[in-house]
Structures are given as structure tokens and as C-alpha cells.
């Protein structure tokens, strides 16, 4: 019986770690005598599967195309300095805190990382955050950490971006950075990136000093974009009990007056309405508990919206 797949791939890993010079597939199969099939096509297939598996778990396999006698042949090796986890010495309390943190996001990949750092099984946590996962996120983070330009497709167009940072807000991930084509700072929804994100190896950038993704991105969706008619905020009356919910969301600073129109507990708030769509959706989400008081053009805008719906049959024009 031949070697088990685990034995073979572990031996391949060992060989590529040990060698000082890159090895061709022929040399690899000679060194690992009896491990790989003899016939070339089967040998190549088996080796490619093992190589893909090793790369998949994070093993950095370097390749080199040889010259001279072996011109055109590809050779492989693993740089041990890049293979091993180094330079990360966590104290026990730090490791424990990190392990507790991973427990709050309940992440399997986080658990793998915790194990590598010497931690153990995640405990259960009384606080859990479900954070949206996307395949593009680790690549974007790594690119941002190494200051490497990335390329991806978004709304059918190829983009090149210097990713300054990532932001999770209201459950959605955004990547914010300098867009090469538009020559300005742009924001993209990560879940709307089409396909893979690729690193532009060798294309690096500097992040502006003190750059903060929070500042580059309005805190409130109702502030995004530009108003058609210039009104940047509106007064909205909210009945109890929703007034308390809205006060929790907007804060005391947004309160214009209390006990509005003689209704105990009703509150008038000043609400940003630069993005009229977001504003309208927010107000209508409060149902009949809320009313836009002014300015007149913002109120008229909402009334026109409601009239269009009420005049339609089946809800759509």
C-alpha cells in the first residue's frame, strides 16, 4: 500500500522547507521516491493538488522559472522565514482576551488563528456579534495593511483602488480609498464587489496621515449625497412612544421642542435630509407616528410621494 495523502503532503511540505535551492517537479518526485505516481500526467496532477492544498492553508510556496539546462522549467521552495509565525509573542492575559473576543464573533477561521497563537477552544459568550462575512474582506484588509493597490470589478467596471481602510456600519462593509481612475477618495460596498479582489503586486501607496474612515464616510445615511433643493435638515414631529426610540437614535441634541402641539411626550426633532430618499424612508418607517413639519419643500416632497402611491393600483405606477 502506498503512502497516505496526509503523509505525502506532509513530506512535500518538509522537503520544500528543507531545500535551499528551488526544486523542479522531477527532483521532487525523485526525492520523495515512491510517494508520487510514476507517469508524468498523474504525477503533475497529484503534485498540483498537494500544492493547491498547501497554499490554501497559507503555506507560501515560491516559484522560479529556471534558465540554463532546465530552461523553462518551474522550480519550487518554501522560505522558512515567511512560513513560520514569528514576532508575535502574546502574554497569557492578552491571548485570553483575544480568545474571548473571537468567541463574540463565533468565527471558525478566528478559532484557527487562536490555535496558532497557543489558545484553546472558544468559550461561550454572553454577547455575540454576527458580522457579515465576504470572501473579499481578508484580501482587502491585507492589502490595506501592506499598502498594496487592489483591482476589482464593481457595477460592471474595473476599478483600481488604494484601500485606506474598511468600515463596518449598520451591518454592511465598505472599503474606502483612493480610486485611480477618478483620482479621488471613493467608497464601495464590499458585498457588491463582483468576483475576486486581486492585489497589484508591486503597486504600493501611502495612506494620508491621520486618515480616518469614519471621517471619510458620513455617519448618517440621511447625510449622504447632495440635496436637489438645498434643504439640509427638516423638522419632524414624533408621537410617543416612538419619540423615545428616535431620541435614542438621534440623541438629545436633535430635539427642537417637547410636548409638540400639546401632545404629552411628542417631540419635534431636527433630522438631516440631505439624502432625500434615505430621509423619506426613515420618516415613513415611523408610520403614522411621525409627520414632517417643514421646511415646506421637504413636506411637499413627502406628500407628493404619498399621493403617487395612493393613486396607483397595486402599488406601482
Amino acid at each position: 500500500m502506498g503512502p497516505s495523502p496526509l503523509e505525502r503532503v506532509t513530506n512535500l511540505l518538509t522537503l520544500l522547507l528543507e531545500t535551499r535551492v528551488p526544486l523542479t517537479l522531477k527532483q521532487i518526485s525523485q526525492e520523495l521516491a515512491g510517494m508520487y505516481p510514476d507517469k508524468y500526467v498523474a504525477l503533475r496532477g497529484a503534485f498540483e493538488r498537494d500544492k493547491a492544498l498547501l497554499r490554501d492553508i497559507g503555506v507560501p510556496i515560491e516559484t522560479e522559472v529556471l534558465g540554463g539546462d532546465q530552461a523553462g522549467e518551474t522550480a519550487y521552495l518554501i522560505d522558512r522565514d515567511r512560513y513560520e509565525l514569528r514576532g508575535l509573542q502574546l502574554d497569557d492575559d492578552e491571548r485570553h482576551a483575544l480568545q474571548m473576543a473571537v468567541a463574540t464573533i463565533r468565527s471558525d477561521t478566528g478559532q484557527e488563528g487562536v490555535w496558532k497563537l497557543g489558545g484553546s477552544v472558544l468559550p461561550s459568550s454572553s454577547v455575540v456579534t454576527n458580522v457579515a462575512q465576504h470572501d473579499a474582506l481578508p484580501t482587502l484588509r491585507a492589502a490595506s495593511g501592506s499598502r498594496t493597490t487592489v483591482a476589482f470589478r464593481y457595477r460592471g467596471t474595473e476599478r483600481e483602488l488604494d484601500p485606506y481602510g474598511l468600515l463596518l456600519r449598520e451591518g454592511f462593509w465598505y472599503v474606502i480609498g483612493h480610486d485611480h481612475r477618478h483620482q479621488e477618495v471613493r467608497t464601495y460596498r464590499v458585498d457588491r464587489i463582483e468576483g475576486d479582489v486581486t492585489l497589484r503586486q508591486g503597486a504600493s501607496f501611502e495612506r494620508p496621515d491621520g486618515f480616518d474612515v469614519r471621517a471619510a464616510f458620513p455617519a448618517d445615511a440621511k447625510l449622504l449625497g447632495e440635496a436637489d433643493d438645498g434643504a439640509s435638515s427638516a423638522e419632524v414631529a414624533v408621537d410617543p412612544p416612538l419619540a423615545a426610540v428616535v431620541r435614542g437614535e438621534l440623541g438629545d441634541a436633535a430635539v427642537v421642542r417637547e410636548d409638540a402641539a400639546g401632545v404629552a411626550g411628542a417631540v419635534v426633532f431636527r433630522v438631516p435630509c440631505v439624502n432625500r430618499d434615505a430621509f423619506r424612508s426613515w420618516v415613513l418607517g415611523l408610520g403614522h407616528h411621525a409627520e414632517v413639519l417643514g421646511p415646506p419643500e421637504v413636506r411637499a416632497d413627502l406628500v407628493a410621494w404619498l399621493r403617487a402611491i395612493s393613486a396607483s393600483v397595486g402599488g406601482a405606477a
Binding site: L13, T14, L17, E18, I57, G58, V59, P60, R82, Y83, E84, L85, R86, A97, L98, M100, A101, V102, T104, I105, S107, T109, G110, E112, G113, V114, W115, K116, L117, V127, T129, V131, L137, P138, T139, R141, A142, G145
Partner: peptide, 29 residues
């Protein structure tokens, strides 16, 4: 004896998860 005395470096997804988890927990009450 020689190999596998140290863990493999963190993959990009592992690094992402650890950093994200840490920052999440730092933002909690």
C-alpha cells in the same frame, strides 16, 4: 526535531478574523 516547531503564519482570513474580533470586542460595553 527541526520542522514544525513553530506554527504556520496566520493566513489572511485568520488575520482578518482575529483583528476584526478584537476590534469588535473593544467596541462592546
Amino acid at each position: 526535531p527541526r520542522f514544525f516547531t513553530r506554527p504556520l503564519r496566520l493566513t489572511a482570513p485568520e488575520g482578518f478574523s482575529l483583528l476584526m474580533a478584537g476590534r469588535t470586542a473593544l467596541a462592546l460595553p
